[in-house]
Nucleic acid binder design. Sequence first.
RNA 1: GGCGCGGUAGCCAAGUGGUAAGGCAGAGGUCUGCAAAACCUCUAUUCGUGAGUUCGAUUCUCACCCGCGCCUCCA
Length: 466
Amino acid sequence: MPIALYNTLTRKVEPFTPVTPGRVRMYTCGLTVYDYGHIGNFRTFVGVDILQRFLQSQGLALDTVMNITDVDDKMIARSNEAGRPLAEYAATYTAAFLEDMASLRILPAQHIVRATDCIPDMVAWIDRLVAAGCAYERDGSVYFRLSSFPAYGRLSGKDIAGLQAGARVDVDEYEKEEARDFVLWKAARPNEPTWPSPWGPGRPGWHIECSVMAEKLLGPTLDLHCGGTDLVFPHHENEIAQVEPLTGVPFVNCWIHMEFLLVNGEKMSKRLGNFFTVRDLTDKGYRPSAIRYLLASVPYRRQLNFTLEGLDQASASLLRLRNFLDRLRNADLPPSGDPNPAIATAREAMLASLADNLNTAEALGAIFELVRTSNIALDRGTLATADREAILETFRQFDEIFQVLTPDEASSEGISDAEVNALMEERAAARAARDFKKADALRQQLESHGILIEDVKNAPARWRRK
RNA sequence: GGCGCGGUAGCCAAGUGGUAAGGCAGAGGUCUGCAAAACCUCUAUUCGUGAGUUCGAUUCUCACCCGCGCCUCCA
């Protein structure tokens, strides 16, 4: 199936064709681990995950890299405040980040690279940039010479001349040739961890880390480079400038940028303090799968205004899908030869929507339509075993990408299956004796533990965890 | 100011030059001991506003209004 993706560089949805047929090299800008990630951060990573899983479902092999920024101004400030060594401080939040990613069922990149693991590579690359005349040293720091790279500004659509005026540039701390030049290597300052370099001790700038890791592991030309939309400028613009002068080929064929998560109509950010972490929400009793569903349900190029109400709606939608699957799996069906062709049509529609720049909302529409028509067929008794297999296969393909159908691990404070079954039997006995008062009390009791009961005709009642 | 995203029912949201997918919530009904789940019916004569192009526009063009973002901290 032909895949089309929106490319920030061309500002168009265009056919996606990897450089090497059947193989996709993609890089994602990860997190600066100075604190827990918030769900705005994770919206980007869920979006990337949907993209990755979809590409895989289309038979493409992936080579994936994500960086973790574990040294920068904020990291240093925070670790100093906490009175903990930078590496130790970073390790704490790196671990938390990976845990949160896993709880949201985001496939880890094959290479998760810490900035501090690649500093010699960065130094070497900066050295080459200096040698090529694209960078220069001043007082132990190294800057990129923007005037050496005329293509600068193409990705973000910026007019470099406009940047020159430099109204917002701090020129007090470092001596640059031009205000718009950006830093590649920062000279050592007091109370900062440092690494050796030809320009003296210091540390890398933020932008160079992604360039070097991406080029080293996936270069010279990547198929996809993903990140939040706020990274377009200057981060990704700088990445291009840092790489292309030395490789002479396009750094990235297709740039993918995920739109923001908003809260009350404003960007969710640590600076504004209006953020929720995954932990905040699970503490309120929300399930990671519902968070993932919400983040995935709005197409990635649309801003998504986050509300708890929206999360409730997502939970309810998800419950409908799971209820349907339970019902389908447990149904007594007549055998038949061929499945209803409408099921295959729904599957095609779901995949076609995703192939069209990851239109997840439309893909979900196709799935819910299949749910409704299948429920009707179940009611009428016209759904047969072959249909069930076809529907389950469609859902398998759907969930291979969306990853929301498997129930979350039950919380530890819940009651055990054995206890539930005992209460269920007690309730069944009460119902048989037409002691509905007792039966209802037992149902109430189970509900308080998050257990939902469904009475079934001519069969034992079913239950499941909410 | 420059660049970008968006304004579709109470909420979330898809979509197309030919007459509005889907989900959530709500109302009534079927089923049930009662529920739950499911199904049925109802819930936008209308897609920010105005003008234009067209036989016909929510979909194209222009103008305007409103929200959000980026413009060297930022997913």
